[in-house]
Write a protein that binds this DNA or RNA. Sequence first.
RNA 1: UGGGGUGUAGGUCAAUUGGCAGACCGCCCGGCUGUUACCCGGGAAGUUGCAGGUUCGAAUCCUGCCGCCCCAGCCA
Length: 434
Amino acid sequence: MSSLPSVRLADLSAHAGQQVTVHAWVTHLRSSGKIAFAALRDGSGVAQAVFVKNEVGDELWARVALLTTETSVRLTGEARVNPRAPGVLDIGVRALEIIGPSPTDYPIQPKEHGVDFLLNHRHFWLRAPRQTAIMRIRSEVEQAIHDFFYARDFVRCDTPILTAAIGERAGLFSTEYFDEGTAYLAQTGQLYGEALAASLGRIYTFGPTFRAEKSKTRRHLTEFWMIEPEMAWYDQDDNMDLQEELVRFLVTRVLERRPADLAVLERDTSKLDCVLQPFVRLDYGDAVKLAQSRGSDVQWGEDLGAPDEALIVAEYERPVFVMNYPKEAKAFYMKENPADPRTVLCSDLLAPEGRGEIIGGSQREDDYEKILHRLKEEKLPLEAYDWYLDLRRYGSFVHSGFGLGLERTVAWIAGVEHIREVIPFPRMMDRLRP
RNA sequence: UGGGGUGUAGGUCAAUUGGCAGACCGCCCGGCUGUUACCCGGGAAGUUGCAGGUUCGAAUCCUGCCGCCCCAGCCA
């Protein structure tokens, strides 16, 4: 925009007393006959345009009446501090150009709306202060993830989104793929990550994944973003240490750098201080006993349900690893536990405040015969896994990894109840647009 | 998919429990020179989700369908 030099509203205070030009959207107009005030936003911050009739002239004054909600404008005038509201700078307008007019039926008001209505107008809803705060926190978490792994010499690797059937058991989205039959949208990049760990040692993926599960809860999307590190020569203890370090890093980073956005969300940040303590590490069997003692009827051998997880985390009020689940409850690629072959070397990390699982991780089975046996038990098509089995035939290696759900993590840190608000355009089983 | 809830103006919700369909916000018109979700006066705005039934009379009761919300399962 070098042809249109303008000041971002966030930088306006540095220009107090000067003539500036800004580009912005009008969020609200208040008019008093011969003086008018327009609230402005540009994504970086807010300001207030002041129009005085006998200073701007009749021609410009007539155009002030056209400043409906969400009109985009370029305006020029003096930036100055308003002693009555020092936080929001005034612009004493001398020149006004309407760039994009806006009809008077803009649907979003600064009032209560229903969720369905807001999601139907997601493209507008994203302009609201609460939503922009959430998006900035999401961006901060994403950047922090890259910084964390970059500082530890992990290589970021991108794995395919179109795949032949491979991965976990949950529902798959499919599409026709030329003469190759059916392609599926990836539910995980993990198996490719294992191949890359044998190449680069420590890697992570960062990308969208797809689940055609008919889940309607506040913690499920059909398209979500997952971070999947995979580390050669890490056992399950090393794996949990890394997860704990990462989660602590992400929370600390958002607390340090996005306090204003957390304030917009009215997040009680004292609830996040718990990440400074060591995370709890609880064996699955002990977790089942704990849930039972708090009224659950879960039995050894069953996966823990959301209410069980809530009971367990409530006991500690900080993140909890539940380790070493029964083999039947978990995926084929998890390594058998030498201390108890009924179980596998894995962990789920449960976030506090009833948030449930944000990470699932495991040490991977590196024994060729054992993983072949597990594939057969699960009745998975062996021909689709030939290259994966090769990783156990040609230089098998101890390795571990995990998958961190980005939206669940952001929703927890930001204190947002439903995961649909922390991704710009959520995809759920009954929502494909906008 | 199962359980629970809900559906009235563009939005958020009332409607004495079967008896004239309303308020606020937004929008339109008018007034106001320092507003802060400004204020004051006036106005337009409805197939009460859809289809059927009971009744002198239905937003309200009954049946079916549909949409949405919450919870559960699956998982990150």
